[in-house]
Nucleic acid binder design. Structure first.
Lengths: 200, 200
DNA sequence: CGAAAATTTGACATGACTCAACTGGAGTGG
DNA sequence: CCACTCCAGTTGAGTCATGTCAAATTTTCG
């Protein structure tokens, strides 16, 4: 019980980018997190079960994905250091998940339980503000993702991704990246190795 | 000046789905909105200019879209009665927009200015809660959109859309729907008229 | 070291796009 | 209120971007 000194420092640094906390507040919010080690391939969310926590990554990488009726996986999100991940439809509405959230490598994360988060938001305006900002930024980032996927070809999406998120590319297997970018692993492989036939 | 009685009632009903307001609070928040009529084809957000307001639709329909370098339009979102729309990347960070937001028909909307929204969120925990919930739900809805677009064929996306949002299909031109669903107008037309060749 | 997982490659298939021509309404001005 | 224009939608032919399949190769890790 209680999180490590380093994790506490990390999460508080993150929170204080957005709101300024006094010592009591810092103690209060940091005490609501649980430190967990998620082993590679371990699931933290599974379809059919309600996501009971959101996960803040201290170190490592998680990935959320759906499996369609043909058995194909589609990556919805990645999370590396400093990012949050969960199945938001499940977490926010506390209903069964449709996503898997799985560790791509051994990962150290802080979990915030839904009930505890509700209590935090209720008891202190600053905590409410913090979660509002996190949600807003998630919204803006997803808007960017939608724009990117609608307006660019497979090759452009890959180029843009490696430019914008090199730290993710470095840690994530290629099949997961391909399914995030909305293409087959084979096609991504061809793009990477310049095997795609081009006109002109 | 001040908004009409009906608009006031509509927005307060919406807000009170999420938080309970006393009379002073109801007066305070409703007084921050401005009622506007947006004529068909009129823009409320344009690339290069910062989105200074978010728009709540009382009646009518708006659409946000990007234009890519080939001049093709891609619809990012629709908004009809009870929905919000803006360029969130521009609004939240108060930086220049990349999207157009335009009226598909003459529309009555309530605009909430960024500065006024900031003040509201700051002064009252309940208002902060309200905007947090709106952002969270937006996030969840965009997560659903991303899943839908990654996991379904053009034809399935169309079928699902008409089942889930018949009220939007009824008000929105087909080219806008096609570009929202990520396909060409011609292809959507063929789907609608069963002109798509199928196997077996 | 060996097995399983991930990636690569080539041949072929196909879903969706482009282009161009045509049709039918809706809006506008005389 | 007619004539004209223009915009949205339709259709078919041809093409292309990306997918599928299957086999070979490389990497990872127990």
């Amino acid at each position: 019980m209680g999180i490590s000194e380093n994790s506490r420092k990390e999460i508080l640094t993150f929170i204080q980018k957005f709101v300024t906390l006094n010592e009591d507040e810092a103690n209060r919010i940091s005490s609501c997190f649980e430190e967990v080690i998620i082993k590679k391939r371990q699931m933290v969310v599974q379809p059919g079960f309600t996501a009971k926590a959101r996960n803040y990554i201290i170190d490592g990488a998680l990935r959320s994905y759906v499996v369609n009726k043909l058995g194909q996986e589609h990556t919805i999100a990645f999370a590396v250091k400093d990012w949050w991940i969960t199945d938001y439809n499940s977490y926010i509405y506390q209903k069964p998940a449709t996503l898997f959230v799985v560790a791509l490598e051994d990962t150290l994360a802080l979990q915030l339980n839904y009930k505890k988060e509700e209590a935090l938001k209720k008891e202190n305006h600053k905590f409410e503000t913090f979660f509002r900002i996190v949600a807003e930024r998630g919204l803006a980032s997803q808007q960017r993702r939608i724009i990117e996927s609608l307006t660019h070809s497979a090759e452009e999406r890959y180029e843009n991704f490696i430019n914008n998120y090199p730290q993710i590319v470095a840690r994530v297997p290629q099949y997961a990246l391909a399914s995030f970018l909305g293409m087959s692993t084979e096609f991504l492989s061809k793009i990477r190795n310049n095997k795609v036939k081009k006109k002109s």
